[in-house]
Amino acid sequence: MIYRILPLILLFLMSFAPKATNTTKTETDPKLLASNNAVTLSAKIEMIYSSLDANNFSLPQLTCFQKALQGFYALKEKGLIEKDIITVIDFSLSSTKKRLWVIDLVSNKVLYNSVVSHGMKSGGEFANSFSNEMNSNKSSLGFYTTGETYQGKHGLSLKLDGQERGINCNARARAVVVHGAGYANPSILRTQGYLGRSQGCPAIPEGLKNEIIQTIKGKSCLFIYHPSRAYDITTKLVSQS
Rank of each mutant, 00 (worst) to 15 (best):
E46C: 08
N170G: 00
I167V: 08
L208M: 04
E46P: 01
A17C: 13
G182P: 02
A181Q: 13
V116L: 09
P7C: 10
L6P: 00
L62S: 10
V115I: 15
Y194R: 14
I89R: 11
Q61L: 05
K78M: 13
P60W: 14
L100N: 00
S131H: 13
L52P: 02
G207E: 07
N168T: 13
T149H: 07
L156N: 14
T21Q: 10
S50H: 10
N135V: 02
V116G: 07
V177K: 14
N113D: 03
W101V: 06
L111Q: 07
S35C: 03
S95H: 10
G182N: 07
S15V: 01
K159V: 15
A17T: 08
I85G: 00
L80M: 10
G71D: 00
D90Y: 00
K98F: 03
L222V: 14
T96W: 01
I188V: 08
K138E: 13
Q151C: 02
N113P: 03
G166Y: 10
G180K: 04
G155E: 12
R165F: 05
L13P: 04
L75N: 12
R172M: 05
S228V: 00
S139I: 13
S131K: 04
S187P: 10
G79Y: 13
K67R: 10
E125H: 05
K159Q: 15
K98D: 10
R190M: 14
L75I: 03
N113Y: 03
I45M: 05
S239E: 02
Y183C: 11
E133M: 10
S94T: 07
K31A: 14
T234Y: 00
T63H: 06
D84H: 09
S92C: 04
A127H: 04
I81A: 15
T215V: 03
C201P: 06
R165V: 14
D161N: 09
G142C: 03
L32W: 08
K109Q: 05
I2A: 06
F130P: 03
Q214E: 10
L62N: 05
E206V: 07
P227L: 02
Y150C: 13
F223D: 03
K25I: 11
I5L: 14
